[in-house]
Computed example of a mutant assay.
Amino acid sequence: MTAESALRSANDAEAPAVSLIDRIFPVNRDLAAKSMFGIWGAYFLFVSSRFLYVTQTNADALFVQRILMTSICIFFTWMLYRMLVVVRGSGMGAAIFVLFLPTMIFANLIAILDQIVFDHDAALFDFTYLFALPDFASFDWAYALDEAFTRYFILASWGALYLAFAHSQDVQRMTAQSRQMELVNRESELRALRYQLNPHFVFNALNSVSSLIIDRENEQAEKLVDDLADYMRAVLTGGAQDMIAVEEEIAQQVRYLEIERMRFPERLHYIVDIEPGAIGWSIPALIIQPLIENAVKYGMSGTDQPVKIIISVKIEEDRLRISVTNDGRVKNLSGDSRDQASGTGTGLTNIQDRLRVLYGQNASFLLANNKDGMATATIVLPDSSLIFQDI
């Protein structure tokens, strides 16, 4: 055995066996089989119901003959189905052609076979006449023409309905695949944003350690490194989940503020106000981390006075409102999401991108200067049930 034949044999062995029913109905099996047997089954029941109001001789043999003709009709309908499968994807013109000429031929063949089957008073289960040469001279061609029109109408109607339902199934399948692909893309984008946020936090945290080392505050620097290690372990491992309870997120940020207070023990003060009704509300993990970092960074810069940071979480109607307020003014309210003139813009842009990916247009992020001379950053979130829904 050559290598090529061995490889072919291995591929044949690995290929899944195709069942007989899949060979008979390779496309839209359930739709084709159910509609095919359904329409001719209904026709069979309708025709067979004649015995209720028409006296028939040799009724048993007629019943068997109707079963035979119904089977013939199902066979030709299956032939039409296979032709429609062949021209699938070739455009509407090819489908119309199949529903016109081949279907007309099938209808006439069914009408001729109908004459052959029912033009004999055969005994029950006697089909010997089917193997004899038909006497076309004795045919009732007017009846055959009427029968051909009826069968053509049934076949063409079935074909048109099959194409319509098959197209509808294809559209639904493509829509489901498109939604699944959109979900995968959004989750990938969200994951990328999370990975972008982690280095952003590490960069700012290491700056805090560097400041203490430069100031030769070795004990505080050592304690800060330990606290940062614990904090980063909690944030970067436990925070890998997409959503987190708002109180857990605030607790992590309070831990961060406690670390920063080691640098500014006399100057940094903070207040946390969580409305009881907001407890348990799910929010994106680390969503307010850049706000806390900016509040510390820009609140402390340019002044040697005490700085106050206020974290507020409230329910307003059916939405969660998270505000981070600090002493200072926002210099840039133009909407381009840059942190400040000296910043990289990573933090606030990251917040906006994550909100867009998670909630579409259902969440908002605002920057403002309030009348008390403080800068306020606000995130407004809907219920977590609206994640991945756009308006």
Rank of each mutant, 00 (worst) to 15 (best):
A13L: 13
A15V: 02
P16A: 13
D22S: 07
S49P: 00
T55Y: 07
L99V: 08
P102T: 04
A107W: 03
I110C: 03
D121P: 00
F127A: 09
P134F: 07
P134L: 04
A144I: 00
L155C: 07
G159H: 02
G159E: 01
Q169P: 00
S178H: 12
R179T: 01
R179I: 03
N185W: 06
R186E: 09
S188L: 12
L190G: 13
R191K: 06
R191L: 07
L193P: 00
H200W: 14
F203E: 13
S211K: 14
R216G: 03
N218V: 03
Q241G: 12
I250E: 01
Q253R: 09
Q253C: 10
V254E: 14
E258N: 06
I259Q: 06
F264E: 01
I271D: 14
E275Q: 05
G277R: 05
A285K: 05
P290Y: 13
N294D: 10
M300G: 02
D304N: 10
P306C: 08
V307G: 02
I311L: 10
I322Y: 04
V330L: 14
V330R: 07
T344D: 14
L348I: 05
R356K: 14
Q361G: 06
N369Y: 11
M374A: 15
D383F: 09
Q389L: 12
